[in-house]
Write a protein that binds this DNA or RNA. Sequence first.
DNA 1: ACCTGAACACCGTTCAAGT
DNA 2: ACCTGAACACCGTTCAAGT
Lengths: 250, 250
Amino acid sequence: MVTKKATLEASAKLVKSNRGRRKSSVALTREQIASAALTLLSERGIDAFSVRDLAKSLGVYPTAIYHHMATKNDLLAEVVAYALKDMEPPPQGQDWQTWFRELFHRYRSAVQAHPSVAPLIGARLVSNAGVGSDLIEHILTKLVEAGFSEDANIVEAFNVVIAAKVGFVTLELAPQPDELEDFEDMMRVRVNTVNVASYPLMARLLPLLANSAFMMRWENGVRRPMDDSFKAYVDVVIFGLERLRGEVSL
Amino acid sequence: MVTKKATLEASAKLVKSNRGRRKSSVALTREQIASAALTLLSERGIDAFSVRDLAKSLGVYPTAIYHHMATKNDLLAEVVAYALKDMEPPPQGQDWQTWFRELFHRYRSAVQAHPSVAPLIGARLVSNAGVGSDLIEHILTKLVEAGFSEDANIVEAFNVVIAAKVGFVTLELAPQPDELEDFEDMMRVRVNTVNVASYPLMARLLPLLANSAFMMRWENGVRRPMDDSFKAYVDVVIFGLERLRGEVSL
DNA sequence: ACCTGAACACCGTTCAAGT
DNA sequence: ACCTGAACACCGTTCAAGT
């Protein structure tokens, strides 16, 4: 335990506790930068995040960051990878349905732990690059197990899985606008002034939909997790994959 | 046809053709601003978009924009609404499966027509507000037709539909990084240096996956539409919804 | 009501210079 | 190799003043 790695962790902790004042003369690492960036992102949100503030929190000049990261985009991609690094793939030896179910749920949990990175995933091509080859190979293996193959839609099925994995969670955890209160009021009013004559179903279902359905909520998934809907979504995807497997191959 | 609306369109065209030089003394409208913003967004991408450039393209001072829009976020929400305003809901009188299939395909076509707004949808809670009540009522009606109800998962089904509608397309059309060439090269290398021993499946399927699968592509859906995968995705969602309807109600 | 014009408090990023 | 320090060319937004 008392190795280079331990020493590094200790110094990292030191730097972290000295926020704003960089006493240690140990060199910065990409990981330290990513970690500090994630902290800042969580505290202030994506819109308020700046390289200059990040530098300040690390006790260095803004330009020091650019010795480790090429651009701000590069930095954000690193933050995504750092935030999701603890997501472990589901254990092997389960049927493919269970495996994919767990994959989706674990991914959601990982993003829920760092919801501030949600808008960076999926909506930017860079962050895709962060996913490891291990996970890709795993997914392909399970798809073969499910009956897909080079001659039977395995590429399509793969893309369905990835889109399904990322899609719901991105929407669920989409960040709120900065002017919180105005937005809440606006949405409350909008939702509660539904014209009963024009929109009978909407009006009747209002108690169920208000602040619980996409486009009718004023709080996002951080404050109001959509657990039941996510469960239904995962069911739909698994059921659908089961049937897709049985349909025509190319 | 020769109405106020036509006059408005004519004046809008005039202003548009006078890019950078605002001869007309007619007042700006939110629609003109949104239109010009969409043009700029398409030409230069979301990262290069600024209120100041938008003002320049309209021939006004940047601060003039703020007489019509509260913030840049507000403006972007307006642009999303403007870009999607031509998306017509599927015609009525079809079975619910066909209706939802068409909804998904029409939505994709609408975003494909203005792919620069893709990263603004879903990943930001503001843009959700842009969807009209008509569409929401339509979706709910079709879900009731499908067998969902207040006592049987209609909220969950609704959220599944919305997440499905937006999810895939957001990923498919996610914008490329600015430093195009570096990224292409990086991804090409990454994809072509897959370790055959560690990742046998990935290596074998490489010809099929390269530049065609999420996380293994270096061009996005604008240049490389993922038609087959989207089709499979829609199938999966419809199949899944059919079966979800039959499962346990709450 | 709608826009000008000046100003404020910031940005990301480059480059030369220090150690 | 890693960081400082100064500088460049921008930002979004506020506010008073004009018409």
